[in-house]
Design a protein around this nucleic acid. Structure first.
Lengths: 112, 112
DNA sequence: ATTTATACCTTGCATTGCTAGGGGTCAAGT
DNA sequence: ACTTGACCCCTAGCAATGCAAGGTATAAAT
């Protein structure tokens, strides 16, 4: 799978991951890998800047958590604005997916 | 629809457009707009460089055509390599679409 | 004559995912 | 004791891409 295809969709994937509950960066990477069936095996240099980007945009918020056993983690959670954004991006993805499918999935009924 | 979502997918859309037969740049833009149901209304500054890119990569080839009536056009057609690439990219899109759908289309059966 | 649609092109920008590095903690194996 | 691997965080700089903005030119419509 081409690497550039993810551009513009990573934020949506991360937001959808955090929709299931707060998680720290490393766990987000693992969730994405598992939930995508291995298709998205993202390096840290991709995900961490994306998380910072989303926090700067106000779509997620972070808290440092230091458990008794283990290392300190930065746990991210969706903000109300993030939930709204995710809803909008779902619609955006549906439209985009339908539009590209009209070109690359010629068996679909909508492909004129 | 977000603008950055098209990144990495435009080449596939253009290749699929030329799959139906040779066309010049301006016609490609119109075909994409029509076939996408208006979702992709691409400016020339997006499509023309992409066509040059694809030709440089050997996936399409161009010929200048000067009809008796009308303006001269640069007509692009898929090369054998382009047809092969399109086939591969169809599979890539299927995988990518399935993977993103697992995050943004939670009603789908594969969304664990 | 002016506007609109057609038809092509390029420069430079903003954004993005990735590579390649860095730091550090902790458990298990050798 | 030492190394390996898993865990957990971060940044600088690169390459690619879609786009805005601008230019050129012909043909048809008003």
């Amino acid at each position: 799978m081409n690497a550039e295809m993810l551009k513009g969709h990573l934020d949506n994937v991360i937001l959808a991951t955090l929709e299931r509950g707060p998680a720290h960066g490393y766990a987000v990477i693992e969730d994405i890998r598992r939930r995508s069936g291995g298709s998205f095996d993202l390096p840290e240099g991709t995900v961490y800047p994306a998380l910072h980007r989303l926090e700067l945009a106000g779509l997620i918020a972070s808290d440092w958590v230091t458990p008794e056993a283990g290392r300190r983690k930065r746990v991210y959670a969706l903000t109300p604005g993030g939930k709204t954004a995710l809803k909008d991006r779902r619609e955006g993805w549906a439209e985009f997916s339908r539009a590209v499918g009209a070109f690359l999935e010629p068996d679909k009924p909508w492909a004129a």
